[in-house]
Amino acid sequence: MTDAAVAPLLVPSFKVPAVTTERPWVRVTLITLAVFFLVVFLFLPLVAVFVEAFRAGVSHYLASITEPDALAAIKLTLLVAAIAVPANIVFGLAASWAIAKFEFKGKSVLNSLIDLPFSVSPVISGLIYVLSFGAQGYIGPFLARHDIQIIFALPGIVLATIFVTFPFVARELVPLMQEQGTQDEEAALSLGASGWQTFCRVTLPNIRWALLYGVVLCNARAMGEFGAVSVVSGHIRGKTNTMPLHVEILYNEYNFAAAFAVASLLALLALVTLLIKISLEWRYADQIAASRRH
């Protein structure tokens, strides 16, 4: 048809910008600003950690992270995370299950209690354990009589870490579980599934991505927690020093290279958790999309 050849000429040739597009100078300014902040506040510090860590050479770096006190700090940090994270998975699941799927008195109180660790300074979080379990604390004398050491020992560090990282799992799960409602569970029960089967086969798969995300955040915070742990740990080298505490001690002793070496390990652990999360998201993109869409 002749019209087809003519028509393009009649169409005005200027580009029609999308309604949601900003003017070029606005775009350039906003993007520059965002990149600037990213570089200065996120990227530069991260690079600085690794640059400083290797300033004194690779051998010094290796020596700093393999000396006995550093190794003990690494072990303690991993151990604390290995206890605190599973504990908070259980607590977080139980709390969000209760809040999202049941109606009971005091539900809103419980819901805001979960946020308490976020609103309280970590130092206070540590202090409450010292006041409760310490020698001068309420049940300190009882614990002392029975030779149970909580403060300035592993149990105290674990307790403080659990307290500080408690909201991460629950905060991820509650909104999702509330949104999903109870109909899937009711369907499973009516099909003959027991409560436990329903939980494992229906509830858990429905929330697994949010749970994973909560666990990643919880783990990052558990390994990096400083304030609360600092109060309850007692800073005993090679015994109750976690990695962040060890970094601080080294730094205060002007042993910058060693401090940054251990810090770089912490940063590396954080990066690894992030990478695991990204790769899981990438690998299961279909399922994640399906579970959100449906």
Binding site: Q183, E186, A187, L189, N206
Partner: peptide, 19 residues
């Protein structure tokens, strides 16, 4: 119990297991 009743239930929003 719900399980023992052996009742087939179909919901308005289907409640299919999405995973």
């Amino acid at each position: 119990t719900v399980q023992e009743r052996n009742v087939g239930l179909v919901f308005q929003n289907y409640a299919l297991f999405r995973h």
